[in-house]
Design a protein around this nucleic acid. Sequence first.
DNA 1: TTGTAGGCGTTATCAA
DNA 2: TTGATAACGCCTACAA
Lengths: 325, 325
Amino acid sequence: MPGLKEIAQVAGVSIRTVKRALSQTGPVSEETGRRVRAAARRLEYRPNLAARSLKTGASSEIVVLMHSTDELHMDKLLGIESVLRAAGFSVLVLFALSETEESHVAEAMLTRRPAGAILFPAPSNRLQSMLSLILKQKLPYVVLDTRLEGVNAVRIDRAQGVEEAVRHLAAQGRRHIAYVGPIADRSRLAGYERALAAFGMPSIVAETPAGSSGANEIENAVRHLMRATPSPDAMQAYSDTLAMTLLRTLHALGARIPDEVAVVGFDNRAFASLAHPPLTTVAQPGRDIGEAAGTLLLRQIAGEKPPAQGWTVTLSTRLIARESA
Amino acid sequence: MPGLKEIAQVAGVSIRTVKRALSQTGPVSEETGRRVRAAARRLEYRPNLAARSLKTGASSEIVVLMHSTDELHMDKLLGIESVLRAAGFSVLVLFALSETEESHVAEAMLTRRPAGAILFPAPSNRLQSMLSLILKQKLPYVVLDTRLEGVNAVRIDRAQGVEEAVRHLAAQGRRHIAYVGPIADRSRLAGYERALAAFGMPSIVAETPAGSSGANEIENAVRHLMRATPSPDAMQAYSDTLAMTLLRTLHALGARIPDEVAVVGFDNRAFASLAHPPLTTVAQPGRDIGEAAGTLLLRQIAGEKPPAQGWTVTLSTRLIARESA
DNA sequence: TTGTAGGCGTTATCAA
DNA sequence: TTGATAACGCCTACAA
């Protein structure tokens, strides 16, 4: 691998001149510049990042901490990578699936001396311990889609997308719109309630257990809902996953979808378009989230100081209308 | 950030001695060793990887080239990361979704001077151009799950998993087992045919267009199949995605699943367990694939020479029995 | 407009 | 058992 020295020899000038010519960091004569650049090109010169980093004390690596293999994270990762690569940074991925791994991953992160870190969603306690490390190092960072307050974060407005969805249902003339899902998490529920309030419609909430288990409870909830008079003519589900169970139960009850009952999911997962009927749902802007996180991080690296209460970018979610509503 | 120098000062010895004590690379007296290690711990010393890399000329970074955001890739990435991190390497992710990006990504890869590269599935021509670069650099590499021959690769035996699935169907007494999918790709079809041959059963193949489009064609194929006498009592689908359409069409025809017709998918995607009924399918060992790739790469980095025709590890796929078969 | 020289932190050679 | 010293490639203060 050729370095500045070799280029200098070939071009018959000093290292300093090569540097000036290649990084336009000082005056170089027309002719010399051409010769140097030609030599660099011919030798396929690429700067040695390790040497640069050693000299400048600055890292060109960003650590991304992932805590799950959720398919939705792929797009976020893509967004992060595209923004950071364009800015000359490398994206270094670390997985910490379990609490036990967290300390190894923390150690790995610190050893890499990154220029910044991006944290994917994780249980608060694990996020907290990583964050305290990061803050101690005064490392630029961004947390993705977290409930933690007072931190730099890219968040998404779930309520807004759900409100949009419920308005969409109302615009179809639906008047008995139910919400099915856990109610401890009000992120979607709030949007549902806002939309109903705007139309002066009563809320019909069927609580189901949190977590992905409990298909039976969901089924019972739906059956219960459908026995009411009048029965709901639309259902907003907490997630696409939950919506799948909804669809199945409604089919079993003989309800025609969307004619008799509309169903809306949340997440726009890969299978949403494969559901029967194809599921109308609210999508998170995965790639945008990643790009926003990358941008926010770059601004910190460039020296901008986040406010004390943390720097937040909130992105909107959007309705994907398919056939189920 | 403290370096060896600072530790040396604190411990009252020379840099060389610190180095010996910390990396057991030479004789150090009991007492000196203790003092040095204590100082290192107290100062939270971490080696400067940039300096090390500059000095040794060796990189501790592995580049992972991704060409899609397929959810199934997450587990592979996880496997790669876990093996490589354990060996002290960093995993650097680069995305090249389009052909246009490929050259930028190639340039980014070369600039990073990685110790090796892992290539995710991509169209052959794009893989080829990356590979020619990599070979020119004599970089250790592994390609994941590729049809390319003569390269270092981790492959999966799709036929074997499908054969297992079809045997499973036969063991249930099914005697008219159909295969639905594109036939240009024989990777699954071969397993289907092997199993049928073993049981002396006739093959019933319904060809559908390649790619994820063409729900109509699939529907027609299924309807056509079900009109035959006798009609199939089981169907092996090319993919989970295709299986979803199968399920829907069979439901529409009033067929009871799995009583009248069993359905088996391929891939074990996230939605397989959410299908109605939960989809029996053949799973790729995502994490194992990643781990195998990491291991294969590490062996090359350690100096083992792959044979001229390439080094291949083939992993088996496995049947995940759920309720659809 | 061009060149000299020193240092970043690590590794490793050589001498004591 | 220990230490002085050079070198990796890049960046830059300072001279010419």
